[in-house]
């Protein structure tokens, strides 16, 4: 039995892995999407910026910015969840700036977005839930809110094509 991983190391290892996966999506940074992590639970955060606005009169977030936010939330959640065991076992070690160390991202097949109310000019949050994750396909639902967790302003259902079995990642064992 090996000694448990020291908490500082564990925290940094997981945060670094998450940051590396998110940094692997340049558009996430441009749009202002980041992630909060509690254990393996992720919350996507869309940090408000005026360039996300679609209707300056209200003002309201652009439907396309919301769509991209939900898709990024779903992709990162799915990748994170499917890599978790490998990361914890040390087989997958995502490193920023090293594309070959990153788990390959699922490809979006389709996404359906419901716009439930205006996205206000402030931060937004999203959480994804994997409805089904098979070897080839996955179905993911995403809910997004701003001030109140129970008042969703958008939700989406997405289908993904999973990356097919890949050679062991360099950096893994």
């Amino acid at each position: 039995m090996t000694a448990p991983e020291p908490v500082e190391s564990l925290r940094r290892r997981r945060d670094d892995a998450l940051a590396a996966i998110v940094q692997g999506i340049p558009y996430a940074a441009w749009l202002g999407v980041g992630f909060d992590r509690r254990g393996d639970e992720l919350t996507a955060v869309l940090r408000y910026d005026r360039k996300q606005i679609g209707n300056p009169l209200l003002p309201a977030l652009h439907g396309g910015a919301i769509a991209a936010f939900l898709e990024i939330a779903a992709v990162v959640h799915l990748t994170w969840a499917r890599s978790w065991d490998g990361m914890e076992a040390g087989r997958i070690i995502p490193r920023a700036g090293d594309p070959d160390s990153l788990p390959r991202l699922p490809k979006t097949i389709d996404i359906t977005i419901d716009y439930l109310r205006s996205g206000l000019a402030r931060d937004a949050y999203a959480r994804a839930r994997i409805v089904r994750s098979g070897r080839r396909y996955a179905s993911v639902q995403v809910e997004a809110w701003q001030d109140n967790r129970d008042r969703l302003f958008a939700q989406a259902t997405c289908h993904f094509l999973m990356p097919q079995d890949q050679p062991p990642l360099p950096g893994g064992k």
């Binding site: 999506i25 340049p26 558009y27 749009l31 679609g54 652009h62 439907g63 396309g64 910015a65 769509a67 991209a68 936010f69 898709e71 990024i72 979006t108 996404i111 977005i113």
Partner: peptide, 11 residues
């Protein structure tokens, strides 16, 4: 990114 294409088509 797909979200960019979404924004373009939505607009």
């Amino acid at each position: 990114h797909g979200g960019v294409v979404s924004a373009l088509m939505d607009t």
